[in-house]
Amino acid sequence: MFRWILLLLTITLLGLQYRLWFGEANLREVWALQQEIERQRSENDHLVARNHQLDAEVKDLKQGLAALEERARNELGMVKQGETFFQLVPALPQAVPLPIDKKSN
């Protein structure tokens, strides 16, 4: 009698383990979904931060001309009337002279 109970419990345990590892909604799927949730949360946090930044920029543009002027200067290169604009251009690297081939002369 004890053997039958032990055999029944063993079969039940194996059946439950099979469902846990290979059945519907198994542990591998749960782990994959948890990783997907973390990835999505990270992406959402990034998008929320970007939205806050854009919202602040819109408020600045609506409230004052300073932000609009700064944007026009930086992005469009605009200059106020009466201002002097200086553009600094980096120097070109010095050209290395080519060796003279004496045989071709």
Rank of each mutant, 00 (worst) to 15 (best):
A91Y: 04
F86V: 10
A56P: 00
F86W: 13
L76E: 12
E70R: 06
V48N: 06
E70M: 11
L14C: 03
L68P: 00
L9E: 10
M78I: 06
H46R: 15
L88G: 01
N74Q: 15
L61G: 02
V58H: 12
V89L: 12
L6I: 04
V58G: 04
L47Q: 14
A95T: 05
R19C: 02
G15P: 00
R50D: 07
E69H: 08
Q40S: 13
G77P: 00
F86Q: 13
F22L: 11
T12W: 11
E38I: 01
L20A: 04
E69Q: 14
T12C: 10
P99C: 07
H52D: 15
V48C: 05
D45C: 02
L68H: 03
N51F: 08
Q81Y: 06
N51H: 09
V30T: 08
I37M: 13
F85K: 15
L20R: 13
A66H: 15
Q63P: 00
Q53W: 09
R19P: 00
R71Q: 04
T12K: 07
E36Y: 11
L9I: 13
L20S: 02
L6S: 10
G15L: 06
L8I: 10
P93M: 03
L76T: 05
G15Y: 02
T12M: 14
E43G: 02
F85R: 14
K80F: 08
A91K: 05
Q63Y: 12
L92P: 00
E83A: 15
V96L: 01
A91T: 03
R71L: 02
